[in-house]
């Protein structure tokens, strides 16, 4: 099962020109969504989309700029949820720009859909907890008369 999204798009424009379209708020709105983006490391911003009741999503994406390397690399967190400050998807978006002979290759990687990552968050895979639980389960499974002097 795939656990991340990967897409590459090629443009005739230079990386400097394409960079504008992924960092300038007004230009982003033209193709992506309304947003409050500013290309500043650590800056917190939002995207606004239509609510998605089927995914229990209120339509706001909460982002923080994690990496910023002008014309080369842009990374932001991508979190959303049903509202009331609850965030059920905690993911990351990575943009990479590479100059090519014809212009620019723009690579998008969106990660954080890994089931085990979420199970870790759930605490189901918490090792200490799991081991303790297994001990309890073993103990309960063992017949009373066989539980000692093993």
């Amino acid at each position: 099962m795939p656990t991340e999204i990967n897409h590459v798009v090629y443009f005739q424009q230079s990386p400097e020109q394409v960079w504008e379209y992924i960092t300038n708020s007004e230009l982003i709105e033209l193709w992506l969504m309304k947003n409050t983006m500013k290309p500043v490391l650590g800056y917190q911003f939002q995207f606004k989309m239509r609510p998605l009741p089927e995914l229990k999503m209120d339509g706001i994406v909460y982002c923080t700029i994690m990496e910023l390397e002008p014309f080369k690399k842009l990374t932001y967190s991508w979190k959303c949820g049903p509202g009331d400050g609850k965030l059920t998807l905690d993911s990351m978006v990575y943009w990479t720009l590479e100059p090519s002979d014809k212009g620019t290759a723009l690579h998008l990687r969106h990660t954080g859909f890994n089931e085990t990552e979420h199970l870790t968050l759930f605490g189901l895979m918490d090792k200490g907890w799991l081991q303790n639980m297994q001990k309890i389960v073993e103990f309960i499974k063992t017949p009373a008369h066989g539980a000692t002097n093993a």
């Binding site: 005739q12 424009q13 379209y21 193709w31 992506l32 969504m33």
Partner: peptide, 12 residues
């Protein structure tokens, strides 16, 4: 993303 990147392609 497929649909949004298509928008960006058209735009550019």
């Amino acid at each position: 993303w497929i649909s949004k990147l298509k928008n960006l392609e058209n735009l550019l």
